[in-house]
Simulated scan of single mutants.
Amino acid sequence: MELSGLLGKNVIIEALTGVFITNNVDIEKLKKSIAMSSCLKEAGLVLRIKGQEDWKEKINELEACRDIRITIRRVGGIGRQINKQQIISYFKKSYPGKIVLEAKKPEIKEDSCNLSIIITDGVIIYGIPIYYQGKSKLLSINPHDLPYYSPGALNPWFSRLLTNIAGLEKGVLLDPFCGTASIPTWASSNYHTIVCGDINPVHCKGGLANYSWLHGFDSKINIVRWDYNYLPMREASIDAIVTDLPYGRSVRSRGTSEEELAERFFKTFCYYLKNNGVTVVSISEDLYKFYRQSLCYLDSKCLMFIHSKLSRVILRFVKKTQQVDPSSLIRQG
Rank of each mutant, 00 (worst) to 15 (best):
N23C: 10
N24T: 11
N24P: 11
N24M: 11
N24R: 13
N24L: 08
V25S: 13
V25P: 11
V25F: 09
V25D: 03
D26P: 14
D26A: 13
I27C: 07
I27R: 10
I27L: 05
E28P: 11
E28V: 09
E28H: 13
K29C: 03
K29M: 06
K29A: 04
L30H: 11
L30E: 05
L30P: 14
K31F: 10
K31V: 06
K32S: 12
K32C: 09
K32F: 03
S33Q: 05
S33R: 04
S33M: 03
S33A: 15
S33W: 00
I34T: 05
I34P: 08
A35T: 05
A35Q: 04
M36P: 02
M36T: 00
S37T: 01
S37R: 07
S37P: 01
S37N: 02
S38W: 02
S38R: 03
C39V: 10
L40Q: 02
L40I: 11
L40V: 03
K41G: 01
K41E: 11
K41D: 01
K41A: 04
K41V: 08
K41T: 09
E42Y: 06
E42S: 08
E42H: 10
A43W: 04
A43K: 02
A43H: 05
A43F: 03
A43L: 09
G44I: 07
G44P: 04
G44M: 07
G44F: 01
G44H: 09
L45H: 10
L45R: 13
L45V: 14
V46M: 11
V46I: 03
V46P: 01
V46D: 05
V46E: 08
L47D: 00
L47T: 00
R48I: 08
R48C: 12
I49M: 12
K50Y: 03
K50L: 05
K50V: 15
G51M: 03
G51E: 12
G51P: 00
G51T: 08
Q52E: 07
Q52G: 03
E53P: 05
E53L: 13
D54T: 14
D54K: 13
W55E: 10
W55V: 06
W55Q: 07
K56L: 05
K56A: 03
K56E: 09
K56G: 00
E57C: 13
E57Q: 04
E57I: 01
E57W: 10
E57V: 11
E57G: 01
K58E: 13
I59R: 00
I59M: 05
N60D: 14
N60E: 15
E61C: 01
E61L: 10
E61I: 08
E61H: 03
L62T: 05
E63D: 15
E63I: 12
E63R: 10
E63W: 00
E63A: 09
A64P: 04
A64K: 09
A64H: 09
C65S: 15
C65F: 08
R66Q: 15
R66G: 15
R66I: 15
